[in-house]
């Protein structure tokens, strides 16, 4: 338990690698905490850090799976609620302004992706935007999984630099 509190921030950053935002990562850290409190107090844990990360990895696997299901459901719901063409009229002035800002942000993100070199961009689109696993992305592109990880790494570096300013 002490190990958990000492490593809380590290665990948060570890989990956040696969969640949509920091708040979701916080939720997962909370789940992890509950799971750990449920463990037998007297159990002799020889490597608490390893156990924590093992549990965190398992939690992530479950989370990624259910998040994908959720996203698909959301998308289906949105299509139905909004109508086939995906457009809808904002109701109030504030909502309209918000929509304009969101629009601008999406244009920025898309422009940053469009500026990546072609192979790197393709890897990023398949893996990050279309949500394929690294192995699936590697297969689709006919390169090794190692290569996909390299492309993703380089893409993150470029995007972080570009979006920081």
């Amino acid at each position: 338990m002490r190990a958990f509190f000492e490593k809380r921030e590290n665990l948060l950053l570890f989990l956040a690698a696969r969640t949509r935002d920091m708040a979701t990562a916080e939720d997962l850290v909370q789940d992890l905490y509950l799971k750990i409190s449920a463990l037998d107090r007297d159990a002799d844990v020889r490597a608490p850090a390893a156990l924590l990360y093992r549990m965190a990895s398992n939690l992530l696997v479950d989370h990624v799976r259910s998040a994908q299901r959720g996203a698909r459901r959301d998308a289906a719901w949105r299509r139905e609620a909004v109508g086939g063409d995906g457009t809808h009229e904002p109701v109030s002035g504030a909502a309209a302004e918000e929509a304009v800002i969101a629009r601008e942000r999406i244009r920025q993100l898309a422009a940053a992706v469009a500026d990546l070199p072609p192979q790197m961009q393709r890897a990023f689109r398949l893996h990050k935007l279309e949500g394929r696993s690294q192995a699936e992305t590697a297969q689709a592109m006919g390169v090794s999984v190692k290569m996909i990880e390299q492309h993703i790494q380089a893409a993150i570096r470029h995007l972080a630099q570009r979006l920081r300013t």
Binding site: L13, A16, A17, T19, R20, D21, M22, A75, A102, R105, I106, R107, L109, A110, V113, A114, R125, K128, L129, E130, G131, I156, R157, L159, A160, R162, L163, R164
Partner: peptide
């Protein structure tokens, strides 16, 4: 920093794909 750039795409991946 890297995480912020990475997560920026999470809530709007489909929109970014459409825009691209």
């Amino acid at each position: 920093d890297a995480l912020a750039a990475w997560q920026a795409f999470d809530t709007c991946a489909d929109d970014v794909l459409e825009e691209l």
